[in-house]
Design a protein around this nucleic acid. Structure first.
Lengths: 347, 347
DNA sequence: TATATTTACGCAAACGTTCCCGACAACGTT
DNA sequence: AACGTTGTCGGGAACGTTTGCGTAAATATA
């Protein structure tokens, strides 16, 4: 099938004008007589003329489009963040191209390449959990492609970064558990080199330390696929219950991780919070429907998307090279429900 | 900031060759000597040359990109469908541009226009719940832009359409309720003119009829924003409980609708299934974590996305005008859990 | 009336690529 | 020796748009 849009040439031909005149008339240039302008405008309206943005992109070397790379859109945090991104982008006249890495380094590299060569004007990225090498980003960035990292950021690239205050969020979650009487708190998190894992682990440790609870490495489990692979999570869970000194609570450090943990615990027949209390970093708004209702640390996903996008667009539209970079950390919200309630009975 | 990619001209200049020679060498044309080819290829590799797809699009009047329009990506059905779309698109060399209508007719028109003028090669769309007028689609379609509708389809445009078997899914859900002893089955659904609403309502009626239960209009409620607006749902729920002849079960006909109903019922303090049994059309995979675990009709979202994409690409790549259109209806899956279990006690 | 200024428009190049066409060697064939 | 082949390569147009420059006619100025 072929789709033949009408061009500026068609208008020119129909009206006996040159393309330059038509172009100028369309833009309302002062050097076109008002009659001609009117003529062109009316005709363009009539035949429903739309400028070809491909041609414009070629000329201006600008696309007015933003590339987004996330691991998965079927993830409450990311779908909310994307809504934030869109809300800003569209207002500023930018289109948005979303791609999913599915936590694969391989796919991420391909996507980055593809997006860059498609001439997106900038990139908004949360790196995949498999990514340890950042040269694919670095190369483009050094060539001048604006990139803003959000959520999972990369420290070795000096650009704007937007995150939730993961340290504080993790600290709050852990301390909440401690205050409710839990002492052996397991921590299931994503790949250890991921910024979010590091930050959240630190917050967890800090809360333990502050409350005079020793840090026990055997209570920390890394699921390299962030909860996307069920067995990874179930294995971690099984290990937790195999410990001689049993864990009495669980802090899950990610959206999918949290829900997958809940599924795993259910499958293993564990009572929450009787056998184990659970709190998770998740942006689901279904937490109150769960059995038991789920205590969560909620990230301001929408706002993170917004802030990141504003920063990116400011980079894109900056005349001079940007040298002053920000790391913005937005506050998380602790929502306490039944999955972490204090155990009343003594078994 | 500026991003200056290397072009075919740069290669030509560096190697003392014309652009045409370089172009041909890159494509491996037979009329270029193998030494020259090697020279060009190696140099291109060295400086990391990437062809500019914008220029290609301009030339070929093809984009190798597909536009997707859905109401919301933060919706289990759609995010899964999008995964299906991507899985096919990327394999076939197409990029995917996702846009959200947020159930607004206004936004939908703008997006359609924008996408079309951005020269996507085709459109995959599930219409917004506000959309009653389809001329924005028709115009483009008649001009030759391939469009495939999925999920919420529009009957008056003759093209490929891919849906779940909504009739059967609704029939199964309703009959399941009936078989479990429920007789006054409320039906909360989306805007009445939406294809999915019509099909599901028909299935619901059919199941009632087959089981000799009279259809009562007062049991059917339309939430025009498909569960996106909480109050709409709460109002419907309140009405249900105000009925003289009380409803004993609820069939919710959408993803967001189902979860929002659950939230509403919780807020109203209703016991499920004691006060009212619930089954919903939803693709959440968290149904078993709910309290009570949720019976659902699951749509093959991923497959729907795949099939729709295959059909779209076949339209795009077809040499001759496509005249033979398919309506594919994929089977739903009934997953029975506790929210519809037979009531044992008599209050 | 001759010259300067304004008004209103067209020409052509450019963005990066492909591809038709033509050119010109170095051959082999009569 | 004259011709046709073959193998390599370059020139230039085209895709749709913007924009610097040129220019003709119309008007204003001297």
């Amino acid at each position: 099938m072929k789709f033949e849009p009408v061009t500026i040439k068609d208008i020119g031909k129909a009206l006996g004008l040159s393309t330059s005149t038509v172009s100028r008339a369309l833009r309302g240039s002062y050097e076109i007589s008002s009659e001609t302008k009117k003529l062109v405008l009316e005709y363009a309206e009539k035949i429903n003329y739309r400028p070809n943005p491909i041609a414009l992109s070629l000329k201006e070397r600008r696309n007015h489009s933003l590339g987004i790379i996330v691991c998965e859109i079927a993830n409450n945090f990311f779908s909310q963040a994307i809504n934030g991104i869109e809300s800003i982008a569209y207002n500023r006249g930018y289109h948005v191209i979303i791609s999913q890495s599915h936590e694969s380094y391989e796919r991420e590299s391909v996507i980055v390449d593809h997006l860059a060569s498609r001439s997106v004007d900038g990139l908004l990225v949360s790196v995949s959990s498999e990514t340890k090498d950042y040269t694919h980003f670095k190369q483009l960035y050094e060539k001048g492609l604006p990139i803003v990292f959000f959520d999972r950021i990369v420290s070795e690239i000096n650009t704007h970064k937007v995150i939730a205050d993961n340290f504080k969020g993790a600290f709050d979650a852990t301390e909440h558990l401690i205050q409710n009487g839990f002492k052996r708190i397991a921590h299931i998190t994503s790949a250890p080199y991921l910024s979010i894992s590091i930050e959240r682990l630190e917050g967890y440790k800090e809360a333990l330390g502050k409350n005079n609870i020793g840090f026990d490495e055997k209570l920390v489990y890394h699921c390299y696929h962030g909860g996307m692979i069920y067995d990874e999570v179930e294995d971690a869970l099984k290990n937790i219950f195999k410990l001689k000194q049993k864990a009495d609570a669980l802090f899950a450090a990610g959206d999918r991780l949290t829900t997958t943990c809940m599924q795993g615990l259910q499958k293993l027949g564990k009572k929450i919070p009787g056998d184990i209390a659970v709190i998770g970093f998740t942006n689901t708004n279904l937490g109150e429907l769960f059995n038991p209702s789920l205590s969560v640390v909620r990230q301001p996903a929408f706002e993170i998307g917004q802030v990141a996008t504003e920063l990116l667009i400011s980079m894109i539209e900056s005349k001079r090279p940007v040298v002053d970079f920000h790391l913005k950390a937005l506050q998380t919200e602790l929502i306490i429900r039944d999955s972490t309630s204090r155990i009343k009975t003594i078994n």
